[in-house]
Amino acid sequence: MDLRLKGKNVLVTGGSKGIGKGIAGAFLREGANVAVVARGLEALETAQTEMPELRIFQADITDETARDDVFKKIEADLGKIDVLVNNAGGSSGGSVMDTSLAQFEEAMQLNYHSAVHFSKLAAEKMEANGSGSIINISSIFGRESGGKPTYNNAKAAMISFTKAFADEMIKKGVRVNGVAPGSILHPTGNWQKKLDENPEKIHQFVQEEIPAGRFGTVEEVADVVTFLASERARWVVGATLNVDGGQSRANF
């Protein structure tokens, strides 16, 4: 299927490794121009070595001023932005009582506020062009319990934001959607660390919790993201699609 993404300008946050890197690579293979922003310069440079066409930008996107500054730089380099993928995220803390308020605030800045801010910045330009696609990477745990509360809270907020912003922006030609991955295995992720530490426990988890009987891959997430970004998904608005091999327990 031709997704008609050749020549499109794409920005992926948290795009130096893991799912974000996989998404960036998928868009490059479709012939798009791709910029990624992340905190770690070494990981960014490694990604660019593997994908020479990739444009890399370093910034701490938990900081509002840094987000403003890097967006301007990316826009100056790419020109108009056709697709924004808000992928940056991470989890920290433990149980609610063992997690400081500062950690909750940091999680919201990284997982949620960065996505809202970049969405507003990109949407302003997309509206002027009469078209655009914004895709927010959340999690199945944004819909149900599981994982760390700081992460779950932020991803739940992202799913809610996705629907609200989608209804607002579709009138202006801009589609907003989301993807909610389940457990995805990649070299720099938490699941790989857990697998290395206790293979027997993790294999048992997979068999009990993932109906498909295996972890997902970054490519499987990236395939859904590129589809949603394309005109092939032009009637998909405000949806957050599970990509989880059946792992989610939610009915809706």
Rank of each mutant, 00 (worst) to 15 (best):
K21S: 08
G22V: 03
G22N: 05
I23M: 04
A24L: 07
G25D: 13
F27V: 02
L28Q: 03
R29S: 12
E30A: 08
E30Q: 12
G31A: 10
A32I: 01
A35I: 00
A35H: 05
A35P: 07
A35Y: 11
A38S: 10
R39L: 13
A43S: 14
L44K: 07
E45W: 02
T46Y: 09
A47V: 10
A47C: 01
E50Q: 15
E50H: 12
M51K: 09
P52K: 13
P52T: 08
P52L: 11
P52C: 11
E53V: 12
L54N: 01
L54D: 11
R55V: 06
R55F: 12
I56S: 02
I56V: 10
I56F: 07
F57R: 07
F57N: 01
F57H: 03
Q58S: 08
Q58C: 00
A59D: 00
A59N: 11
A59P: 11
I61Q: 09
T65P: 11
T65E: 15
T65W: 12
A66Y: 02
D68A: 15
D68E: 14
D69E: 14
V70Q: 10
V70S: 01
F71W: 13
F71R: 09
K72Y: 02
E75N: 14
A76Q: 14
D77M: 10
L78G: 05
G79F: 08
G79D: 03
K80Y: 13
K80C: 13
I81S: 04
I81N: 09
I81M: 01
I81K: 06
D82I: 06
V83I: 15
L84G: 01
V85Y: 00
N86K: 05
N87L: 02
A88H: 06
A88P: 01
G89V: 05
G90E: 05
